[in-house]
């Protein structure tokens, strides 16, 4: 087993998306709590104590999202208090908190996903599905920094010519339009060189193969198998209705059947699998180093 940043991108994607996916489509409070805990834990494991600002933002977002629902929705039977002649109910508050947990945990998962799935890893995934699109994306990935740098150069050149004044918004916008227009011409005209270079190296000669530096190792197989096992378990439990939670009109918590417990166990393992994989690797390296 390797940490997700080391393993095959496909495995990493499956692992993160299945953890995030279940939490997105399920309103069970235990599952959501596990998802939130797992997502935050993985983010902390990867980024350490850094990223304080994003934690603060996510906390605020959680609070806002949790409070919006009881203010807007007045379903439910347990009235907490009355605001502006409208009842604020416990059910709506809990529902809001669950929804907020679903959203915020998904945001954490996808933040980690974005960090892990750098351009080349995403391209690897895409290349499996569609080599041609992967190539378009790869070119676009190359163009973005190139164009940004060129835009900077154009801006400087226009300023040196006195053609770029930055005053009010309209002037700034107009200046941006000018820079963008020059950039567009440059990009299109020079694109023909890229196209020529592709043709010169036999693009379109026949069926393309896809070369990649990523391999599928034993550790990837282990991680994938574990992911699928836990995901399957959680799905079965979910599909059988063992995890269904009713919020309106009154709260009905799911029963603690063995199936539900198995579902919680599976999902809990799935949610912490990324962190565990990372921890495992840290442990292994410290062992190796102490032996050296």
């Amino acid at each position: 087993m390797y940490s997700l940043s080391e393993c095959n991108p496909a495995v990493a994607a499956v692992c993160l998306l299945s953890a995030a996916g279940i939490a997105m489509f399920c309103m069970n409070p235990v599952i959501l709590a596990l998802s939130l805990a797992g997502a935050v834990c993985f983010f902390l494991v990867r980024n350490g104590a850094g990223g304080g600002k994003s934690h603060l933002f996510f906390c605020l977002l959680f609070a806002v999202l949790a409070l919006v629902n009881p203010l807007v929705s007045h379903n439910g039977v347990t009235v907490l208090f009355v605001l502006n002649h409208r009842p604020v109910t416990l059910e709506a508050l809990l529902y809001g908190m669950a929804a907020a947990a679903a959203v915020v945990s998904a945001l954490y998962w996808f933040r980690s996903f974005s960090q892990l799935m750098t351009g080349d890893r995403l391209l690897y995934l895409f290349g499996r599905l569609s080599p041609r699109l992967a190539l378009v994306l790869s070119m676009a990935f190359r163009f973005v920094p190139l164009f940004s740098r060129q835009a900077k150069k154009i801006r400087q050149a226009q300023r040196a010519l006195g053609r770029l004044r930055e005053g009010n918004i309209a002037e700034t916008f107009r200046g941006n339009v000018r820079v963008f227009s020059i950039l567009l011409t440059w990009a299109l005209e020079n694109g023909i060189v890229t196209a020529d270079s592709m043709a010169a190296r036999g693009y379109g000669v026949g069926r393309r193969t896809q070369f990649s530096v990523f391999r599928f190792r034993r550790g990837d197989a282990v991680l994938l198998a574990l992911t699928l096992l836990f995901f399957g378990g959680a799905c079965v439990s979910l599909a059988c209705g063992a995890l269904d939670m009713v919020y309106y009109p009154a709260l009905v918590f799911p029963e603690c059947t063995p199936l539900a417990l198995a579902g919680y166990l599976c999902y809990g393992l799935l949610a912490f699998l990324p962190s565990l994989a990372q921890g495992w690797e840290v442990l292994r390296w410290s062992c190796l180093r102490s032996r050296i």
Binding site: R132, L135, V136, L137, M139, A140, F143, V144, L146, F147, S148, A151, F180, L183, L184, A187, L188, G191, I192, T194, A195, M198, A199, Y203, G204
Partner: peptide, 17 residues
């Protein structure tokens, strides 16, 4: 064709930039 692909990639990158 390679040229249409390049134009598409150029336009995508321009959107992002």
């Amino acid at each position: 064709g390679s040229r249409r692909m390049v134009i598409a990639a150029v336009m995508i990158a321009l959107c992002v930039v």
